[in-house]
Amino acid sequence: MPTTAPSPEPSAPSGQGGTSFADATASDSALRRFLHGLPGVDTVGLEARAASLGTRSIKTTAKAYAIDLAISMIDLTTLEGADTPGKVRALAAKAVNPDPTDRTTPRTAAVCVYPDMAATAAAALAGSGVKVASVATAFPAGRAALEVKLADVRDAVAAGADEIDMVIDRGAFLSGRYLKVHEEIVAVKAECGSARLKVIFETGELSTYDNIRRASWLGMLAGADFIKTSTGKVGTNATPANTLLMLEAVRDFREQTGVQIGVKPAGGIRTSKDAIKFLVLVNETAGEDWLDNHWFRFGASSLLNDLLMQRQKLSTGRYSGPDYVTVD
């Protein structure tokens, strides 16, 4: 019986919380110095750590816990040009009642749609506790004028979005104009009102782990409530390694500022096995404070059905099949 240590009591090196990074964002050059002063990331070591945590064996009671937790963390997503109100209403129904055969199944965290579908989703989800998340800021490329992006956000918030998933300007980031990225996030945040802001880095386009760490800090400094890996629209989306890296960032940020930020891997997470690996990353990196759908989400669609089938297997002892879960 492995005896896990009691939760560590972080004795932050410099005054727990409260560190101010106001100076870091005072100018383009200051921000650049700050971000480039963050510790580097060794690719091989990071990926090896993620792979090693991926070998954790989660069985029986722990698996049941993890599956329910994962279901409750899903931002059930449809982001297609072909989306219709009917499709969104069906998805909302599934979010509220994922497994019609088992009412003990938890609800998902949110339904994630384009802004023009936010009102439909809000109506369908009213009173359910399931949040409405809307992508905005000219998702997924983000190639539009700031005013257009802000209008996109205002539109979604007005339509009832509880959460806004924005994309950063990767072009500006990659060309070193960090302050522009920062200012844009601040401007979007201002339009969000009470809606929580998820900042998408599109890690596949940032390409290096050093960039992902810098983007994480940039996003957190600018007021992100969540940092999110990807749009799901490019080749490489969420991976254990880039999510591990972002979990390290939110862990370190809370230690230094006292402010807790959420993490959302999105895209490519399709199986229960994958989802449980991510939860192990959360558990052993950021810690159990993040094991809650207020602080960790999965951006996914097909993942839910796999979790439901695994859940049925655990409760009945039989392997389930696709005919016993609902198509979206």
């Binding site: 492995p2 064996s57 989660i58």
Partner: peptide, 11 residues
Amino acid sequence: MASAFDYAPAP
């Protein structure tokens, strides 16, 4: 103190 995500024995 048990963590919320307590890994069950996996021998």
